[in-house]
Design a protein around this nucleic acid. Structure first.
Lengths: 189, 189
DNA sequence: TAGGGCATGTAACCAGTTACATGATTAC
DNA sequence: GTAATCATGTAACTGGTTACATGCCCTA
C-alpha cells in the first residue's frame, strides 16, 4: 500500500485534481498517513499510465490549467484488490519520544519546550479529527470507516495529550535534579 | 535523527553487540521506532568509521565471534549534538487505519478479522511497555525518560484498544448493512 | 512587499525494508 | 524435523522527502 492506493481511494469520493487530493489527505488522513506533492503528482501520473484513472484538462483564466482525475472501472477493481492484499500494519515513528527517552541528556528547558511544541501540534491534529467527524462534509454522506478513523484519532490524541500534560513537569523536574546532581551521598558511581 | 543516533543512545546504557542493540530496540523503542538488522549493522559500521564507537572482537566457542561496541567521547558529544538539533516529529503510518477508512469497500468478515489482528498486536505492544516500566531492569536505574516513553505507550495503546473494542461491532454492522444495500426506498442514487 | 493560496511538475537524495548468505546449538 | 536463538553482514530495491522550477492573484 502506497500513495497510489490512497489516491485511488480519494477518487472514489469524486473527481479531484492533484491539488485537491493533497487537501483531502490533510483533512482526512493527516493523523495516519502523510504525503506531499512530491509523491502525489508522480503517483497520479503512474496511475494514468496504468489506465486506473483518466484525466480531463480544464483551462482556467488567471490560474494555471488543472487536471481533473477520475477513477476508471479498472482503477476501482485495482483499489479493492490492493486493499484486500494489504497486511494491516500500524507504525509510529516518533523523534519526539526518542527525545523524551533521552531527556536526561538534554537541558531541562529544552525538554519543556519540546513537550509544549508537541502539545500544540497534537491539539491541531485533534481539532482536525474533530472537524472530520462533526462536519457533515458538504452533502457527501460520512462513511462508517471515516467516522471510525477520525474517532480513533480523536481519542488516541486525547490520551496522548492527557499523558504528556500530566507528566510534563515531573519529567522536567527529574531531569533537572539528575543534572544538578543528586545529593553528594548518592553522587558516587 | 536516524538509526545511527539510536544506536549511540543505546550504547550510553553500556557496551553492546549489534544483536543486543536490536533486542534493546525491541524492548524499549518498539512502539515508536523500528529498526531491523539491515539498518543496524550498517549503522554501526558507519559509526565505527566515524570514530563515534570503538569495537572489540570477542571469540566464542560454539558461536560466531561477536563485536562489542562502546561509545567514545566523540560519540557521546555527537549524540547530544544530534538530539539537540533534532526537530521533534511524531508520525503515524497506519495501513490499518487506511483499511478502516475504506471499510465500506471490503467484506465485513475481513474487517472483523483485521481489527482482531490489530487488537492482538497492540496487546503485545502494551505488555512490552508495561514490562519496561515494571521491570527494575537488572540493576540499571530506570531513567525518567524511559519511564515517560513507556508510560506514554501504555496509556496511548490502552486508549487505542478501548476505542477499537468499543466500535468494532458497530463498524462491521454498518458496513454489512451498506453492502446488502439500504432499504429499497433509499437505494437510489 | 511579503506571504499564502492556487496549480503542476521534476530530480536528486536518503534511509529503511527485504531478501539473501552462513552456520552451530538447543528446545519442542 | 522444525523453529528459535545467537551472530554478522551485503546488495538490490523501494518509496518518500526535499529542493528546485514556474507563475499569477489576493490579502495584510
Amino acid at each position: 500500500m502506497d500513495v497510489k492506493t490512497l489516491c485511488l481511494g480519494v477518487l472514489t469520493e469524486g473527481d479531484r485534481t492533484g491539488y485537491e487530493i493533497k487537501q483531502r489527505f490533510e483533512e482526512a488522513f493527516n493523523h495516519f498517513f502523510g504525503a506531499g506533492f512530491g509523491s502525489i503528482y508522480p503517483a497520479l501520473a503512474q496511475l494514468s499510465r496504468d489506465g486506473l484513472v483518466t484525466l480531463r484538462e480544464v483551462e482556467q483564466d488567471k490560474r494555471p490549467d488543472k487536471k481533473v482525475y477520475r477513477l476508471t472501472e479498472a482503477g476501482h477493481r485495482a483499489l479493492i484488490a490492493e486493499l484486500m492484499a494489504t497486511p494491516p500494519r500500524h507504525k509510529v515513528r516518533s523523534e519526539f519520544l526518542v527525545l523524551m527517552y533521552f531527556a536526561h541528556l538534554l537541558p531541562p528547558g529544552q525538554i519543556a519546550a519540546i513537550i509544549d511544541a508537541q502539545i500544540a501540534q497534537w491539539e491541531g491534529l485533534r481539532a482536525c479529527c474533530a472537524a472530520c467527524v462533526a462536519d457533515p462534509g458538504k452533502e457527501r454522506p460520512l462513511q462508517p470507516g471515516e467516522r471510525f478513523a477520525a474517532g480513533y484519532g480523536q481519542v488516541v490524541i486525547e490520551a496522548a495529550l492527557a499523558f504528556v500534560r500530566a507528566h510534563r513537569d515531573q519529567l522536567v523536574d527529574e531531569v533537572a535534579a539528575s543534572r544538578t546532581g543528586p545529593p553528594a551521598s548518592l553522587a558516587a558511581e
